[in-house]
C-alpha cells in the first residue's frame, strides 16, 4: 500500500493529479518523459520531507492539454499549481525530462527553489555526449535501455503489454513529440542556465544509455558549484537501481 495520498486539481483547465506523502519541508518531484517507474521510490524521502509528486499534463493520471508545445507551458502550469498549493519556496528534484523542467524552472524562478537536484537531466545540447533520440527508438526497445539491471524495472511492467498499456505509452510519447519532435534541444535553455544560483546536486547512473553520464561535466560548466554524484552499475533510472542515490538526495536537501 502506497504512502501517497492522491489529490485531483484543475489547474488552468487541466486535470492535474498530485501525489503527496510525508512530513517536513516541501520537496517537489518532477517525473520524466514516462511514468512506468512510479513514485514509490520517493517513500524514502517521506520521513524528512513532505513529498509532492504531480503528474505533468499529458502523462500518467493527469489530463491532456494539446496546446502544451514547449517546456515554457509546463513552467507556467507549475507556477499556477504551486500557487494553488501555497508552495512558496521548496526543494525541487527532477528526473530526466523532469530534470530539464526543474532546471528551467530554477533558472527562471530561482527565488522559489531552496535546493535543486537533477537526476540524469535532459535538456543539454552536448555533441560530445549526445542524448539518445528516444523518439526514434521502437517502443518495445525502450524498457531495456532504461536500466542497467532489467529485473529492477521488470516488476513495474505488465508481463505482456496489452492495448491499454500500449495506448498509455503512446499517449505519453505523443506529449513528448509535441514538445521535442522538431527541436529535441533548445539552445535558449542553455543560454540562461547560469542563472541557477541555488545549491544544486546532479546525480547520474554511470551506465545511462539514454543520456550519457558524461553530460554531468557539461552541466558543471553552467552550474560550477554543483555537487555531482555518478553511481556505478546503474542506468538512466538510477533512482530505481540505487537506493543510496535516493538517500543522497535526501541528505543533500536536508
Amino acid at each position: 500500500m502506497s504512502k501517497f495520498e492522491r489529490q485531483t486539481l484543475t489547474v488552468d483547465g487541466v486535470k492535474t493529479v498530485v501525489h503527496t506523502a510525508g512530513h517536513g519541508e516541501p520537496l517537489v518531484f518532477f517525473h520524466g518523459a514516462g511514468t512506468v517507474d512510479g513514485f514509490d521510490f520517493a517513500e524514502r524521502w517521506t520521513d524528512r520531507f513532505r513529498v509532492i509528486a504531480p503528474y505533468h499534463p499529458g502523462f500518467g493520471e493527469s489530463g491532456d492539454d494539446p496546446t502544451f508545445t514547449t517546456m515554457h507551458d509546463y513552467v507556467m502550469h507549475y507556477l499556477e499549481l504551486f500557487d494553488m498549493l501555497k508552495l512558496d519556496r521548496f526543494n525541487l528534484v527532477g528526473l530526466s525530462m523532469g530534470g530539464y523542467l526543474a532546471a528551467k524552472f530554477a533558472s527562471e524562478h530561482g527565488h522559489r527553489v531552496k535546493k535543486l537536484t537533477l537526476i540524469a537531466p535532459a535538456g543539454l545540447i552536448d555533441p560530445k555526449n549526445p542524448m539518445l533520440d528516444i523518439l526514434a527508438v521502437p517502443g518495445e526497445a525502450v524498457p531495456g535501455l532504461l536500466v542497467s539491471d532489467f529485473e529492477v524495472l521488470k516488476k513495474k511492467l505488465p508481463e505482456k503489454p496489452d492495448l491499454d498499456f500500449m495506448g498509455e505509452r503512446y499517449r505519453e510519447a505523443t506529449t513528448v513529440a509535441r514538445l521535442f519532435w522538431e527541436h529535441p534541444g533548445d539552445p535558449k535553455f542553455m543560454r540562461y542556465l547560469h542563472r541557477i544560483r541555488v545549491p544544486t546536486q546532479i546525480i547520474w547512473g554511470e551506465e545511462d544509455k539514454i543520456i550519457p553520464a558524461g553530460q554531468a561535466e557539461t552541466w558543471r560548466r553552467f552550474i560550477p558549484n554543483a555537487d555531482i554524484k555518478v553511481y556505478k552499475g546503474a542506468g538512466h533510472l538510477v533512482h530505481l537501481e540505487r537506493p543510496e542515490a535516493v538517500d543522497a538526495v535526501a541528505r543533500f536537501m536536508s
Binding site: D164, M166, Y170, A173, A177
Partner: peptide
C-alpha cells in the same frame, strides 16, 4: 513496414492506435 513507422507519436489518437493495433 513496422508498427513504429506506421504510427509515429501523435499521428493517431490513442483510440485509433488501440483500434488499429487490435
Amino acid at each position: 513496414t513496422i508498427p513504429q513507422y506506421l504510427a509515429p507519436p501523435g499521428y493517431l489518437s490513442v483510440d485509433q492506435l488501440k483500434l488499429r493495433a487490435a
